[in-house]
Nucleic acid binder design. Structure first.
Lengths: 338, 338
DNA sequence: CTGAAAGCGCTTACAG
DNA sequence: CTGAAAGCGCTTACAG
């Protein structure tokens, strides 16, 4: 690979000058500019980004840490991130957080070691103390997604999962459902706790006792929802609605119900969360709660880019709220009308 | 951020020694090793990856270029890539190819400039001549996915899209369908050409003329399939089956049929490609062609890692074949039995 | 087992 | 407008 020295020799100028035309810095005579461009051309010269980064102390890269690689949710997250990074002339370095606090921290360290301008951390496992420790250890700016970071240690954007969950549960309650099965998630995360907390709170408000036999954990996949629903059915206890923690599991549950001849929504209403694109096209179409994942990604990237560019960002964190999407899979509880 | 110099001072050794303990190279007295580790510990030292890369001429990074960020297909591709890269101790740098040959080339250049050890190129747009030009310009090893690269310029892995498409079409033909609508894709790519070519060839073999009114382009999304199917319906021409170029569009088509009261599969059979996870859980479950995307990603990454590590790789390229998955959405053509 | 020195390919004051 | 020189933070022969 040709280096800046090769170019400077061929063009008959110093490498300082070559550097200046590459970066379009300072005043340079048009004629020497042309000389340099021609030399770069004939040599097929490409500046070594690593050397540039080392010398200038900006790597023009954005680190993204996530543990989610499945489904539409992640697709949108990555697509938007890639688009915005690209527009800003930054490379996106993607790293897996492995659903593990220790691995999330390692991921941060490796991105810091690579001198990313800024890190986007989609965190599931870190505690407030972890954030504090990280802050003490590194000066790399970090934007946290999906988690609220207290005390203004890092800027953060997140969903109000309690609210989103309440939307789903209250929708079922308003339709007259009382015996509500719940497909939760086996992973322990703040998101899961908040969603289940909302389930408890909403039922408690209506003075409905939760039937633990009807609460089964899934793994966020369609197959997991299918299995979970089979377990619920096996309990042989009456229920008129299922609330699944995401659309994938809801779809799996509907299939399980279908297979034993239970009609959705006539006999059992089903609602999920995420508003996956397939939701409005399956039959019955799926009621859900839409989370503005595109918006939250954009917000996070905007902050990240500002931080990378040294633009002052307000210390105000942002909470995003979901929206109830009513479709065919939920309907009034006929049993209660009897 | 502390540097190797800070560590060497604190530990009272030369930075050469510090470098050796970081990289675990050569023999070092246990006691000085301890000294260095302690110094690194107290300083919270993290070696600067960029400087390491520059000095050692290996960046421990893998560049991934793709234009697909949607759906399960990409999720699996990225999940597997991230996993394998991580296991190999490499960072994954993801770049968007923008469905544009010029942008794909720019993406390669930027990854080369970043001195990636190897580049995984999921290409849609480059020609054989492009591959040749790139090869002449850069020595960075490249593994091409989704495209066959001729003359052994680069190692490549790809799907036999003609075969996959034939599986779907022949399945419909064997079920007795003759009036087959086709939802193709509006983007022009080799994949699309091959799939449509197979559609033509299979029908021609049975001496069935293609009804162009029943061939409509979609955009690979569920909504696109829905729209495309509506256009087909609007033609008011008889058809007993729909072949969609992917499952998303097939699902959209089924919904469109459902809305006007056409029963799948009793009146119209529908088949897609991709075998998306939801396929076996929607009702009716969706017949499809499974493409071994996980396997192809693994194969590509394995080659890439070998190239990155200087392990000799055989020049044999690999073609992967899909598999027909029969489910509820396709059935025998009742019309033809009359 | 360890250190001094050169080098990786750039950028950036400092001079002129 | 341009160049010589120092420096970014590492690695790696070469000596000892």
């Amino acid at each position: 690979m040709p280096t800046i020295n090769d170019v400077s020799k061929l063009a008959g100028v110093s490498k300082a000058t070559v550097s200046r035309v590459i970066n379009n810095k300072g005043k340079i005579k048009e004629s020497t500019k042309t000389l340099v461009f021609e030399a770069m051309q004939t040599l097929n010269y490409q500046p070594n980004t690593l050397a540039q980064a080392l010398a200038s102390n900006t790597s023009h890269s954005i680190g993204l840490i996530t543990s989610i690689f499945d489904g539409n949710y992640f697709g949108v997250l990555l697509k938007e991130s890639a688009k915005l990074a690209d527009q800003a002339g930054k490379q996106l370095i993607v790293t897996d957080g492995h659903h593990d606090p220790q691995r999330e921290i390692e991921a941060i360290d490796s991105l810091v070691a690579r001198r990313c301008d800024v890190i986007l951390l989609y965190s599931r496992k870190l505690t407030q103390q972890d954030f504090k420790d990280i802050k003490a250890r590194t000066s790399t700016p970090i934007v946290v997604m999906n988690r609220e970071v207290k005390n203004n240690i890092y800027r953060s954007v997140w969903f109000d999962h309690f609210h989103a969950s309440s939307l789903a549960v209250n929708h079922l309650l308003e339709l007259g459902h009382r015996a509500i099965a719940c497909i939760t998630a086996s992973v322990s995360s703040r998101t899961v706790k908040l969603r289940y907390g909302a389930f408890q709170a909403c039922l408690a408000k209506q003075q409905i006792a939760i039937n633990q036999d009807l609460v089964v954990a899934g793994d966020y996949t369609i197959a997991g929802g299918y299995q979970a629903c089979k377990k619920i059915i096996a309990q042989k206890q009456p229920f008129t609605a299922i609330y699944a923690f995401n659309d994938d599991m809801a779809i799996g549950a509907i299939r399980a119900l279908h297979e034993i001849g239970i009609k959705v929504p006539e006999q059992v209403s089903v609602i999920g969360i995420d508003n996956e694109p397939f939701g409005s096209f399956v039959t019955p179409s799926l009621s859900s709660v839409e989370l503005p994942i595109k918006e939250i990604t954009n917000a996070a990237m905007k902050i990240a880019l500002d931080l990378a560019n040294g633009v002052p960002v307000s210390p105000i964190d942002t909470e995003f709220r979901g929206k109830l999407i009513k479709r065919e899979s939920t309907t009034i509880n006929h049993a209660s009308l009897l």
